[in-house]
Design a protein around this nucleic acid. Sequence first.
DNA 1: ACCTGAACACCGTTCAAGT
DNA 2: ACCTGAACACCGTTCAAGT
Lengths: 242, 242
Amino acid sequence: MVQQVAGARRAPLNRDRVLRAAVALADDIGIESLSMRSLAQELGVVPMALYKHVANKEELLDGMVDVVVGEIDPPVGGTDWKTAIRQRILSARRALLRHPWASRVIESRPRPTLVVLDYLNSVVGMFRAGGFSVDLTHHVMHALGSRVWGFTQELFPGSPLPADPEAQAAAFRELAGRYPHIAEIAMGPAHDEGSVVGQGCDDQFEFEFALDLLLDGFEKLHQQGWRSALMRVRPSPAGGTG
Amino acid sequence: MVQQVAGARRAPLNRDRVLRAAVALADDIGIESLSMRSLAQELGVVPMALYKHVANKEELLDGMVDVVVGEIDPPVGGTDWKTAIRQRILSARRALLRHPWASRVIESRPRPTLVVLDYLNSVVGMFRAGGFSVDLTHHVMHALGSRVWGFTQELFPGSPLPADPEAQAAAFRELAGRYPHIAEIAMGPAHDEGSVVGQGCDDQFEFEFALDLLLDGFEKLHQQGWRSALMRVRPSPAGGTG
DNA sequence: ACCTGAACACCGTTCAAGT
DNA sequence: ACCTGAACACCGTTCAAGT
């Protein structure tokens, strides 16, 4: 939120500066407060000046996604596909966690950008390099879904615990009355009858749990030479690399 | 888009009529065109009239989600947990496919409504009834993520194939040049060298593929008496229902 | 080549008033 | 109790102009 001093001569705008300022501003004030007008003000410029560098707000959002995707580390070499893909996805997750708005914006984009396609193409290539058939790679990419980006839909969004422990206990009793099953799992893995509220929940653990479950499943199918039902028309059930 | 005849006496508005009209209008014109103003016009009423029945637009969106979630079938009885949960989730998917905007709106809600909590509580209860430990149920719900609702993030959104076969072939050649791995899996499971473009991709198949992979993984962990790392402090690795 | 200013057609929502 | 009308503080974006 560095304001330009009126009249100070500044470096001329360019697309890159606009995008980086947009990313920083969204990090700062939240994506819902980022408007062409607020971004222009941040840059010490009139809103219409942005349109020389970005066709419209949609293109701005695409460009912001590209900046974040650009922060994902390249693939590590010298390991098996599973380790390499796991590390790459966890790197994507770290990039996204640095920009809390990014997962929502990625979800909302109606079409992928070239930078996004580059990343996806490279992940697909990692499965292929690991010997996965074209067929299995196709399904496996769909099964990953948003997890290639390192995020998943929060199932119980919001509802941060109240600070006051008494209010916390009261909120929990109300939850337990109406939603006993949710209350039970909300207490966390320890499931200690003594404490009213569990230690909440470790998002990173949950992400890796699901990611590893999927990668293990993929590995098993790959080893079994899995082919989709459509292919079962052909008699040979033997595995292969497509 | 039924317009009220000016001066015609209509049934008085109520919350339910407002929500159902909003759902129908979003189905019709798309969620991005649904505004308090367009909805009011649809109902033959001035925008401010809606605020007697709904506190603001956020509450309207929550109510619309509740209408859709209300269309999900109750659990089927008399089967194992896996079949029952599978069927329930596929019913949720059918409800969401009837309202193409619904998945995006569900994702966007910052807090769950009571109706949403009812559904989630009931799915949690289905795992518990199947003998899953509290611990495993917790992780398994996170691993499902948006798949409890019957949807996942589209990895390659947009880009419908051009109608003209020649333009299609050209688009594909361009894709193949820059993104060979994506091009390969985009051709579909058949991977027929003769045809330029595959039959696209069966979203329902992809959804069930990933769902079954997860459910099978859950089943295996359950049978093995899986416990999260935190619990591994305790020596006994035996399974149980928590 | 790059930025500006005024304007347009929208939003969600407030307030005070009408019946 | 329910609906209205005018207004406010915002949006993204156009157009025609400035330097």
